[in-house]
Simulated assay, not measured.
Amino acid sequence: MAHQDPAAPQSASLPEGKDLVMRVIPMPADANANGDIFGGWIMAQVDLAGSVLPARIAKGRITTVAVNQFVFKQAVSVGDLLSFYATVERIGRTSVTVHVEVYAERNPADLQVVKVTEANVTYVAIDAEGKPRLLPT
Rank of each mutant, 00 (worst) to 15 (best):
A2Q: 13
D5T: 06
P6E: 03
P6L: 05
A7K: 15
A7Y: 13
A7R: 14
A7Q: 15
P9Y: 04
P9I: 12
Q10A: 15
A12Y: 03
L14N: 04
G17H: 07
G17E: 08
V21I: 04
V21Y: 00
V21S: 02
M22D: 10
M22L: 15
M22K: 11
R23L: 04
V24A: 12
V24E: 14
I25S: 12
P26F: 05
P28K: 04
A31N: 09
A31W: 09
N32H: 05
A33L: 09
A33N: 09
A33R: 05
N34E: 12
G35E: 05
F38N: 12
F38M: 10
F38T: 01
W41D: 04
W41K: 13
M43P: 05
Q45H: 13
V46T: 13
V46M: 15
D47F: 00
L48V: 15
A49L: 09
A49C: 11
G50K: 03
S51I: 01
S51P: 08
L53G: 02
A55Y: 04
K59R: 15
K59H: 14
G60I: 10
R61E: 13
R61Q: 12
I62L: 07
N68H: 09
Q69D: 12
V76G: 00
V76M: 11
V78F: 02
V78M: 03
G79R: 02
D80F: 07
D80G: 08
L82S: 04
F84P: 09
F84K: 02
A86P: 10
A86R: 05
E89W: 01
E89S: 10
I91S: 06
I91W: 03
T94P: 04
S95I: 09
H99C: 11
V100P: 01
V100S: 03
E101K: 06
E101T: 11
E101V: 00
V102L: 06
V102R: 03
Y103Q: 09
Y103I: 11
A104R: 09
E105Y: 10
R106T: 15
P108L: 11
A109H: 10
D110R: 14
L111A: 12
Q112Y: 00
V113Q: 01
V113T: 08
V113S: 00
K115L: 06
V116W: 05
V116Q: 11
V116P: 08
V116I: 12
T117I: 10
T117L: 11
T117A: 11
T117E: 02
A119T: 05
N120E: 13
Y123H: 05
V124S: 01
V124L: 01
I126A: 05
D127N: 13
E129V: 00
G130M: 07
G130D: 02
K131Y: 10
K131N: 15
P132C: 05
P132T: 07
L134G: 08
L135M: 08
P136F: 06
T137L: 13
